[in-house]
Structures are given as C-alpha cells and as structure tokens.
C-alpha cells in the first residue's frame, strides 16, 4: 500500500488518522512496541506504548533475573505456554525462539568447552574468608564423565581487611553449560595455591564460583528440565526466586498481550476515536461522508448503519 493512502477514519467522531502503510506499521509495532506508531507520526502513542510495554517486559525480566522468557516445547508437562503471550512483545522476546530452535544442542551440555574460556573467575574457597577473583584460561575440550578441566589461576584474595595476590592451580573443574539461564556460568572444582606476597599458609580446598556469560549465551536461554529432578535448572530457578519467578512471567506475558492491542491500533486505528463512550458503548458522532467505504477494524458502530439523524 502506498504511503499516500487516504486517511482511515479512526472512529465515530474523532478526526481521521493517517495510518500511512498500515501493514508496515503493524509489522514495526510487532517488532518494537511503539515503532509502528512512530512511523505513522503518532508520537504520543509511540512513546506511551514503548514505555508501558517495554517497561513491563524488561521489568518482568528483571524481577525474574532474566530467566522467565524462554521457549521449551518438548515435554508435555513443561511446555512454556506463557511464551505464546510473551512472543507478541516482538524483538525482545524472539531470541528465546532462536535459543531453543537454532542453537547446537552441544552448547547445553555440562562440562564441555567448544572454544577457549578466557574469563574472570569470581569464587569462594571453602573455609577461607573472602573472595577469590582472577583470570583463568581453559583450553577447549571435553574431559569426559567424572573428570574435570584444569587451569592455572592468578588473581587476588579479597577480604574485609584488604586484598592479597594469589597464585595457584585449579583442578577437577566442572562447568555449567555454555548456554544457560542466568548471566553467570557456575564453576566448581579444587584450588591449590598460596598468597605470593607473604608467608601465610597455603590456600587449598574446594572452590565454587562463576564466570560471566556473554549476553547471547543467556538471554532467552531455555531452563533445562529434562529429567524433572530437583536439581534441574527450572527447579533451581523456582527455589532461588520464589514467587518472583511467577511475577516475572506475569509481567512479561501482560507486556506481550498489551502489544497485541498496540498492533491492532497500528493496523486499524483506535477503536472509538475521540468521542465519549457511554454505558452502552460509543455515542454516535457525525455521519461519515456518504459513499465512503467503512474501514476494517474500526469501532463496531462504524460499520453499523447510521441514520441521517445521527443515531445508530
């Protein structure tokens, strides 16, 4: 449809709204809430939709620690029906489909590295006060069942009284999958090292920590629940978040459903226009131009025959 399409009547009594190319506007409104209205020149609505819908979506995502928007459609008891609503938020929700459908299944396996891991490890050492923080470099590979990766460690032990440089060796490292829920990838293993600046004793023991995941490795990543065990990612998320998990799901679902209203508004214009609505529905305004075709999707009364006196 050309951009010079005649303005579509937006309702009963309101001024006609120039919807430009409604199909393009609808697609834009789907992709980014408010973008279709911005394209149509309806700036107030564009900002309103963008703030409300994206605010709800990312607010919900934040409440649910980024783990509440994902797509999983394998086990009948663990199908993400909520995603059917979240999907309508458009681009912010689409990565979940990509994560579930187009990622190599190997990236969801525990203890596997397809490329070198070069990251900053933040961890705690059992029995030692403070936090170990330093860089690690683990070559790619798959150590096999029951075995772990090894890597040198060089960093600092941060305690309330200060920080000391530490050097040592990490062994029997077990890694969470490359792609998973949450912005950090958990690492467990064993540390054998010592401070390098003084003669205090060795630092030896089990270590538990994490390294950051790149955005594309966690955003919209499915929560694995393959065996329904208490340690599945889905159950871990429920334990960690409690009711915030469900709140996040509700927020993001409502964001998607609200964008459906916005998409229809971009396609067909507002339902009522600018007239006041009485208890029995919109009150009729002036008659449309004789002979002008009714616009699809306008208020029900638009397609209702209107008498010359103005009453439906």
């Amino acid at each position: 449809m050309p951009d010079t399409a005649p303005p579509a009547p937006s309702g009963l009594a309101g001024p006609p709204v120039n919807l430009r190319n409604p199909v393009l506007a609808g697609v834009l409104a789907f992709l980014i809430p408010g973008l279709g209205h911005w394209y149509q020149g309806r700036r107030f609505k564009a900002v309103l939709y963008a703030v409300c819908i994206l605010g709800c979506f990312f607010g919900g995502l934040s409440i649910g620690h980024g783990q509440v928007v994902y797509f999983h459609w394998q086990n009948p008891e663990n199908r993400t029906y909520a995603y059917l609503c979240q999907f309508w938020t458009g681009l912010p929700a689409l990565p979940a489909l990509w994560q579930a459908k187009y990622r190599d299944p190997a990236v969801f396996e525990d203890n596997r590295l397809d490329r070198e891991l070069n990251a900053v490890l933040t961890a705690t050492l059992r029995g030692v006060e403070g936090e170990l923080r330093g860089s690690i470099q683990i070559p790619p590979g798959n150590p096999g069942f029951g075995r772990g990766f090894s890597a040198p460690f060089e960093g600092q032990l941060r305690t309330p009284s200060g920080s000391v440089p530490v050097k040592g060796q990490l062994s029997a490292l077990m890694l969470d999958p490359q792609v998973g829920a949450g912005s950090r990838r958990r690492i467990r293993g064993y540390f054998d090292g010592a401070p390098t600046s003084d003669n205090s004793g060795p630092l030896v023991g089990p270590i538990e920590g994490s390294v950051p995941r790149p955005l594309w490795d966690w955003y919209g990543a499915p929560l694995a629940d393959t065996d329904g065990s208490p340690n599945s990612q889905l159950n871990q998320a429920h334990r960690a978040l409690g009711s915030r998990f469900e709140l996040g799901v509700v927020y993001t679902m409502i964001a998607g459903l609200l964008n459906v209203l916005a998409i229809f508004d971009a396609l067909y214009g507002p339902a009522y226009g600018d007239e006041e609505v009485g208890p029995l529905g919109p009150t009729p305004g002036p008659n449309p131009t004789p002979g002008s075709p009714p616009s699809p999707g306008t208020a029900p009364a638009t397609s209702t025959p209107v008498s010359p006196g103005g009453s439906a």
Binding site: F44, C52, I63, V250, I254, A262, G269, P270, A271
Partner: peptide, 28 residues
C-alpha cells in the same frame, strides 16, 4: 508486600488499553 507489584501493571494496562481505544492524548 507483593501487592506493590500490581501498581506498575495497573498503570500500564490502563494507559495501553485507553490508547488503543482513543486517539487524543487528553482523552487517553
């Protein structure tokens, strides 16, 4: 309480629903 979480939702739903019904900002 968790009741507070309802407030942003109420505001968003009201604004978006009204915007999908009407065109003029004051009426919305």
């Amino acid at each position: 309480t968790r009741t507070w979480y309802a407030i942003p939702l109420i505001i968003s739903i009201s604004l978006v629903y009204s915007a999908s019904r009407h065109e003029g900002p004051p009426l919305i």
